[in-house]
Design a protein around this nucleic acid. Sequence first.
DNA 1: CGAATCCTGTTATGTTATAACACAGTGGTG
DNA 2: CACCACTGTGTTATAACATAACAGGATTCG
Lengths: 159, 159
Amino acid sequence: MDTLGFTTHDHGHCIAQALSSAEETCAEQGLQLTAQRRRVLEILLQEHRAMGAYELLDVLRSEGQGAQPPTVYRALDFLVTNGFAHKIERLNAFVACAHPGERHAPAFLICKGCGSVAEMPSRDIARAVREAAAGLAFEVSRMVIEAEGACPSCREARA
Amino acid sequence: MDTLGFTTHDHGHCIAQALSSAEETCAEQGLQLTAQRRRVLEILLQEHRAMGAYELLDVLRSEGQGAQPPTVYRALDFLVTNGFAHKIERLNAFVACAHPGERHAPAFLICKGCGSVAEMPSRDIARAVREAAAGLAFEVSRMVIEAEGACPSCREARA
DNA sequence: CGAATCCTGTTATGTTATAACACAGTGGTG
DNA sequence: CACCACTGTGTTATAACATAACAGGATTCG
Ligand SMILES: [Zn+2]
Ligand SMILES: [Zn+2]
Ligand SMILES: [Zn+2]
Ligand SMILES: [Zn+2]
């Protein structure tokens, strides 16, 4: 299963897979994937990019619902807490998880050229962070890893 | 020179050293460390913790100046751009650099118990990030590395 | 059914950050 | 000196992001 970020892919399949993975996980853990929460996750999967909470809110409203900010933030809180989506701190934005089901510390690449965001492998990074923290007797429970730069296509365009 | 974060230290010396380092760097690079900018850096050094922009604004106002948000944000922009301070994305807050003068990718430890923030060695982490990004043909220009968890004293208190 | 719990709707507000424009100081140039 | 370009500041207003607080509906379980 490749979940690379800057490549094209069968997006319909990608969305369906992520949704069923979320349903499965919720069933296993007794979590309620309600209509609101599912809809927000669907939007994030559909758009396949980092979106602000108010941008999501606009989508919900355009669908005819009279949603308010807390509606979106509650759904996002559920999705982030349970690993179905991640918050990109640098952007104050949210993105669907590219590795649903796998336990992982998320790590992101943010292209300053085109704004696209991809989740990257984080095992080695997470180990380096834990080791550096251990050197100061600090115990890590969560980490924010976000790299800004130029994605392959923007690098090419520049050259 | 030890710039550990969770230890006590000669803070007067620490402030004076950071300020003179900033002055020196500005002189070398033709940057203007104006009164406003210097004052904001002094406050960050004095408090020795992560502070929000509006918290800094309150301090300036308590000193009798009728400062407005842009005043603080401009000073912070200068300090962050030139490496005298860093932004902690997770906290929407700012902290004076603990390694002034050295070129480095900042990396932070944030204690969820007491709120203290420390800058940690980042060389190995930065390398791991660049390598993971290179695997996706992504070129990193800047990175956000912030680990949340428990600092030594909070770990002890819990045990 | 009754009670507890979780989820949602709604109003209002808090917090963080920037746009836009006017103006002052500085330093170079002719 | 008159002029210009550049950088920094003051000020007003507003944008963008996020949560508090309370009421009420749905679900579950004994
Ligand atoms: Zn996809
Ligand atoms: Zn790009
Ligand atoms: Zn200090
Ligand atoms: Zn602590």
